[in-house]
């Protein structure tokens, strides 16, 4: 271990790549760590808000991980949660203002959930579990990776909910009018939050089916 520390690690060493790709599947924040479920249910009715939410969360996790990792040796352990919250809250306010400035309508749709990123378990979880014990660059990558893992699930859920619930994708009509004329009706339950939970359940089911090692004993 001691020799490893002195060596300069490549920026995209296999270990660092794993920080990026791991959360997409084997350590996915939503389906494996079961964090951040609340916002995943709330913002996935349509794809556009889901994508914006995923980006917002990715920015916040990445940079809060980075900042906390820089400060990690200077933070007194007893007040670390408060320090973490200050950093996260600052970033969330920045993101919120940016969203309001550039994509106001989406910001309106996301409503309180942007502000609630502060309390998103993924962020606190990653800060506690990773950033407090790792160097800034891996911490930053870990933040990006977890943000992507969160975003991936959000986008999958939103894809099915928007397609089946509204017949659109990113606001464009996908299901042809002729199908509606033939008697097709949008599934009203897809718009309700319970269906988001069930969709996430199905994703977890499929994922566990292919990765048997994830099945809890």
């Amino acid at each position: 271990m001691s020799t490893e520390k002195t060596e300069r690690e490549a920026i995209f060493s296999p270990k660092n790549i794993k920080l990026l790709t791991g959360p997409l599947n084997m350590s996915n924040p939503i389906t494996v760590q079961i964090l951040g479920i609340c916002s995943a249910l709330a913002v996935t009715v349509k794809m556009k808000p889901a994508i914006v939410m995923a980006l917002a969360l990715m920015v916040v996790t990445a940079f809060s991980n980075l900042v906390i990792s820089f400060l990690r040796n200077g933070i007194p352990p007893r007040i670390r949660i408060i320090v973490q919250l200050v950093v996260v809250a600052t970033l969330v306010i920045l993101v919120d203002q940016l969203l309001k400035a550039f994509v106001f309508d989406v910001s309106k749709q996301l409503s309180v959930y942007v502000g609630l990123i502060i309390t998103n378990c993924i962020i606190m979880g990653r800060l506690e579990a990773f950033a407090m014990a790792n160097k800034p660059w891996p911490a930053f990558l870990d933040g990006i990776g977890n943000g992507m893992g969160y975003g991936l699930i959000l986008i999958i859920v939103a894809f099915f909910r928007e397609l089946l619930g509204s017949g659109t994708l990113l606001g464009f009509q996908v299901i042809p009018q002729s199908l509606y004329n033939a008697g097709y009706v949008n599934n009203g339950m897809m718009i309700l939050p319970p269906m988001a939970l069930i969709t996430i359940g199905v994703i977890i089911w499929v994922q566990r089916y292919y990765n048997r090692s994830l099945i809890e004993k």
Partner: peptide, 10 residues
């Protein structure tokens, strides 16, 4: 219940 919430029109 699924029918009721998914396709209330019918």
């Amino acid at each position: 219940a699924f029918l009721f919430f998914a396709y209330p029109g019918n």
